[in-house]
Design a protein around this nucleic acid. Structure first.
Lengths: 204, 204
DNA sequence: ACCTGAACACCGTTCAAGT
DNA sequence: ACCTGAACACCGTTCAAGT
């Protein structure tokens, strides 16, 4: 309220939030800086005061998505303190939910739009933190002799791949048409898929 | 040679092939119908004789990608006739290779650009065939008591998810930066990841 | 089954000049 | 830290009229 210097005051955040809305309505291809500016009632070049170009805005949106997942994971960690198996499972469910409820945001985050080699430090940091969180869970599971001892990174990579791949198929509708007609039925199927992952990770 | 009616003769296929080249050079966002036409020396609206719009061209390109994978899988089936475990493994390696050698084509096929609910019959058929091929392999593995008996579709979904997710991470460079620096080392890691999948599928 | 050429509404991005 | 307004080069898509 204090800093409403000219017209808007917090355009940067407003751009990110409205971009998430517009992403959901029109998809990644349908998101344009010009319409974004129009929706917020600012000039078509105002966004350039906060982002060097469209790519940088997309990175900031993706980083916001990762932050939301992180917040959810922190809550999980508190609730399921010493149960890494449930932590892994529930963090996978969270990604699956995001993929079904905000498919376009999910695709922006995990669909390879951001090369992550050329992206800015903000997104890089959030993505890295997201991986670190998984590494921690899996290390814990190994220490508790729930998962087979071994290369932590290998197991982390397996878990990320399975969850990410399943969520991508869910978000792109590859399942509702070819595998099953019922969305509820699909979710049950998805949860069984996680079991196969856990089976591959557990001690035998 | 016979049907070079006016200028080109086989514009439809030329468009698809050049689109794959351009995809590789400029990414999905950089592919435009107008430049495609320019590259082939035809008018900027000539593509509309063969595709209703850009989306339909992209679908045809993706379908071509699926056909290539299918051709590879058929070769595998002959070489590894009664070894479903190797068949599954090698078909996964093929997708991983595609993701690393033609990342943009891979993203077009698996990145959710095509809703598969609203796409034309050609792509739908190829994608469906690609799934069917996996179902066959996994059924065989169950019959030979290599994989645990159970819902074939569940195991198929798990296999597709793992392979697709791993390949997506490979193609978007999420790994070379955060996990390991060496590309060769990554490939070794990837092969170990498949082992975790197989572990989850096998009889215990 | 292609061509040329114009047209429309929309982009991303960059100016210059204002408050 | 925003505005207006013009400008540039590029799109996807649709015409009309040709061969």
């Amino acid at each position: 309220m204090q800093n409403k210097t000219y017209h808007h005051g917090d355009l940067r955040n407003a751009l990110i939030l409205e971009a998430i809305v517009m992403l959901h309505e029109k998809g990644i291809g349908g998101l344009s800086l010009r319409e974004l500016a129009r929706r917020l009632g600012v000039g078509h070049n105002a966004p350039y005061r906060h982002f060097k170009n469209k790519q940088q805005l997309l990175e900031a949106v993706a980083a916001t998505g990762f932050r939301r997942l992180k917040a959810h994971n922190i809550r999980l960690e508190l609730e399921l303190a010493d149960d890494p198996e449930s932590q892994l499972f529930e963090s996978g469910v969270a990604i699956l939910n995001m993929a079904m409820e905000q498919p376009e945001l999910f695709r922006l985050m995990f669909g390879g739009y951001l090369s992550l080699g050329k992206c800015g430090p903000e997104l890089k940091e959030e993505a890295h933190a997201s991986i670190e969180s998984l590494v921690k869970i899996i290390s814990l599971a190994q220490q508790q002799d729930i998962f087979a001892r071994g290369d932590v990174m290998r197991q982390t990579l397996a878990a990320m791949s399975m969850v990410q791949g399943l969520a991508m198929m869910a978000s792109s509708g590859m399942l509702r048409d070819n595998v099953t007609g019922d969305e509820q039925q699909f979710k049950r199927l998805a949860l069984q898929v996680y079991d196969i992952l856990l089976m591959g990770l557990k001690k035998r």
